[in-house]
Amino acid sequence: MSLALTRRVRQTAMVVCLCGAGGAAAACAPAVTTQQEVQLGADYSRQINQQLPLINDQATLQYVNNLGRRIAAVADPRGIPYNFYVVNSDVVNAFAIPGGHIYVNRGLIERSTNEAQLAGVLSHEIGHVVQRHSITQMQRAQNANTAIGVVYGVLLGRNPGGLEQAAVQVGGNAIFAGYTRDAEREADAVGVGYMVRAGYNPQGIVQLFQTLQSMQQRQPSSVEQWFATHPSEQERVANTQALIARTAGATASNLILDRQSFQTFRSRVQSLRPAPSDRR
Rank of each mutant, 00 (worst) to 15 (best):
G191I: 00
E186M: 10
Y179N: 07
T180V: 15
V196H: 00
G171W: 00
G191D: 03
D188Q: 04
P160V: 00
T180C: 04
R181P: 02
G171D: 07
A189D: 04
R197Q: 15
A167F: 05
N201E: 05
A166D: 01
M195S: 02
G199H: 09
N159P: 04
N173V: 08
Y200T: 01
N173C: 09
I175Q: 03
Q169D: 11
N173H: 13
G161I: 02
N159S: 14
G171P: 05
V168H: 06
A174P: 02
G172Y: 10
D188S: 10
N201K: 10
A183S: 13
D188R: 07
D188V: 12
R185P: 04
G193I: 00
A167M: 09
R181Q: 13
N201S: 15
R197I: 11
E186R: 06
G162T: 10
A174W: 00
G193H: 06
A198C: 12
D182S: 14
G162M: 10
A189S: 13
V190C: 09
A174V: 13
E164C: 05
E164K: 03
A198P: 01
G172V: 04
N173M: 15
Y200N: 06
D182V: 15
G191M: 08
A177C: 05
A177W: 09
F176C: 12
G172H: 00
V170S: 03
V196E: 03
V168L: 11
G171M: 01
V190G: 08
G178D: 06
L163M: 14
P160A: 03
Q165T: 14
Y200K: 04
R197K: 15
V196Q: 06
R185C: 03
E164S: 09
V196F: 07
G178P: 01
A177K: 12
G193C: 06
G162V: 10
G172F: 00
Q169V: 15
G178T: 08
A187K: 08
E184Q: 03
N173R: 13
G178W: 03
V170L: 12
E186T: 00
Y194S: 05
A166G: 14
N201C: 11
R197M: 09
A167T: 09
V192T: 05
L163C: 09
G199P: 05
R185Q: 09
E184C: 13
N159A: 13
G171R: 08
L163T: 14
Y200C: 08
G161D: 04
V170D: 07
A174E: 01
Y194T: 04
R197F: 09
R197W: 08
A183H: 08
F176R: 11
M195H: 02
T180M: 11
G199A: 11
